[in-house]
Structures are given as structure tokens and as C-alpha cells.
Design a protein around this nucleic acid. Sequence first.
DNA 1: AAATATACGGAACCATGTTCCGGTTGGCAA
DNA 2: TTGCCAACCGGAACATGGTTCCGTATATTT
Lengths: 193, 193
Amino acid sequence: MPGSGSEPAAPRKRADARRNEEALLEAAAAAFIASGIDAPVRDIAARAGVGVGTIYRHFPTRAELVVAVYRHQVEACAEAGPVLLAGAGSPYTALARWIDLFVDFLVTKHGLAEALQSDDATFAALHEYFLDRLLPVCAELLGAAAAAGEIRSDIEALELMRGVGNLCIGAGRDPRYDARRMVGVLLAGLRVR
Amino acid sequence: MPGSGSEPAAPRKRADARRNEEALLEAAAAAFIASGIDAPVRDIAARAGVGVGTIYRHFPTRAELVVAVYRHQVEACAEAGPVLLAGAGSPYTALARWIDLFVDFLVTKHGLAEALQSDDATFAALHEYFLDRLLPVCAELLGAAAAAGEIRSDIEALELMRGVGNLCIGAGRDPRYDARRMVGVLLAGLRVR
DNA sequence: AAATATACGGAACCATGTTCCGGTTGGCAA
DNA sequence: TTGCCAACCGGAACATGGTTCCGTATATTT
């Protein structure tokens, strides 16, 4: 029942606007795969068959476009947290598995890990969305593992997520660097000795 | 005795060229501190009181300028390796101290860690110089620690250096993220259990 | 002092992000 | 069905920053 409650009752958008937004999402997804999430605005617009103005109207910052493209996958990752915690043998195992999911996501999106850590104002909203959605999940897993005495308890979820995100930068560019393995080492370093 | 041997016998450069090169190094160092190593070429040129063409003539790529500015510090870091290995209580301690030096260097040069991992062709020479100079040192320390049975022996020096470099990205931008601490966790993860 | 090689400056060019406005059109009301 | 207008569109124009190029200036040599 959209429009009820205290929301501003967003008036249904025009049909062409909805079509263009949809086309832009598809075009952006394709461009991101082909050229990474830094794909030139004009390329994305051309793929979608619209003008550049239309991109900015629908997605004022690149971050919003990126979030829109990856929203489903981020949600899935967030929802996997509690499931893993309930199903895995131990909190630490659940944490490790969840981090694996996160890493898999990051390393398959060229440029995403870089953008997440960038201080470029363009990506502030991206940073924020990821943190809003995933930080609580990570904190819960981390807290559970700490409470179980499996890992040291002086590491914050934010530090861990940024550390993991950082380790994923450049993954896949140099076959000699295996981000997953380094993340594994980092997780091992969390364990109490 | 320059000019002897099989070298191309570089003919002494003109005096103004030497002056400008010196001025550029100072200007670049100042600009890097003020705006990070991505400081606009025009800014650096203005600080040095030269035209942009002069920058490109002396340092065809930004990487070469960066290398020239930081060469002394990189050399010092490289030379510290064997000293630490000889003086520290154990190879692992030496490795940890050396990584500390490396991290200190990276986190105080805004944008350097980012550039080191970037795939931007502009920075290829930077990457190469750091690896040429520091990788053998890291490998020696790592090998010694592994031989002493203090750490696992399946990690390559390149992986460790890239991992550490990655963890230093964004250091100092967010007080909640402490790169040094994360590097400490990574090193702890290296230990045999 | 003249000749030559070397180096210099900065305008011009290219790529990319961002803004703005004249023209177009979907949806509704008459 | 027709006509109106708010919403929407396209892309030219502008801003920024890297890179190239060439006419001019100057250090060095003869």
C-alpha cells in the first residue's frame, strides 16, 4: 500500500523514466563487467541509449548507480550472516564463511574494493551503504566468536571489514597475489593463541 | 670515475637543467605532503617555477618523480633488513620490525600505498622499483623466519608485501582504522600454531 | 662572437566528470 | 479526442587534469 503512512507518498514516475532507469541499470552492470565500476559515464549512457543528463537525473552520483546495481548481492550477503551463525559448527567457522562470501563478492567486481576505500567524495554514499548494511552483520559474527573465546576480542568489526576490503584490492590483476589467501592469514591472526 | 667502463658515458647536463631538476624534486616533495602523490602536475610545476613541459622532460612519468623523491627512504628501508636480521632476537622479530618500518613509510606518504597497488600504467615503474629493491629483503627475512620454524612456509614475499601494502591504504583517513594494528594481525596469522 | 646543441615555457589537445537549458512527451483533465 | 503542462530527455558546453609539441631562449663550445 504505497502512499500511506507518513512517507512523502512518492508519485508514480512516468513510464519513460522507469524504462530509462531499467535500461541504465542493465547498461551499467554490463559496463562494470567490461571496464570495472569506473566505466566512463558516456559509455554507460551510450549502452543504455540515453544522454548523459539522464544518468545524472536518475543517479546523481556514481555511488548511487553502483549501489543500485549491486543491491541484491549485498542484501544476500547481509542475510547470510545470521544463517551461517545458526548453521555452522562454531562462531569462528561462521565468521570465516561469511568473510569468504564478502571476499568472493569483492574480487569479482573490478574496482569495487578500490572504490570502497577511496576517499573520493563521489563514493561516500557507497561506503556508507556497505557499512550500514554489512557492519552490523560482521559485528554480530565477530562478537559471537569473541564471546566463544575463539578469537581475540579487541578488534572492531569496522577494522576487520576495512582490512578485508583492502586485501581484496587488486585481486585478479596479478596471479601471484591471492587475496583469498591473505584474508585467510588475517583471520588466522585473529585467533587466540 | 664516471664515463669509464661500458656505460654510454652520460655527457654532463646543462647547469639550468640540473637546477630545474633539483627545484622540481623539492617542489614535488612539498606538493606530495600537501596534496598527496596525486598532486596536479601544474601545481608542482608552479611550485618549482617551471613550465609543465620541464617536468615531463625530467620525469616522463609520475612514477619516476615519485621514485626520485622517495629513493633515499626506500634505500634506508632496504638496508635495514639485514641489520635487523643480525641484531634482533629472532628472525620473526626482525621481520616484524622491518614490516613496521615499511608500514611507517607507507602511512606517512598520502596516496603512496594506493598508487603502489594501482594498475594505472603511470605507476608501473613505481611498482617495479619498490619490488626490485624491497622484495629480496623481505624474502630474506621471511625465509629466515620460516627456516627457524617460527612461521608457516607457504607464503611468498610478494604476497606478504602486497598484503601489507594493501592494509596501509587509507591509513590516517579514518581514525577508527589503524593500519598498523591490522598489519600486526596479519603477521600474527603467519605464525605456526 | 658566432654556432650549435640543449633545454625551456606554456598553449593546445585529449579524456572524463558535471551542469544546464531548449525541446519533447507521457498522463491527465476537459 | 484533444490540449495542456509538469516531468523528462538529449547533448552541447564547461571544468579539471594529464600529455604533447614547437617556437624561443640560453648554456656551452669553437
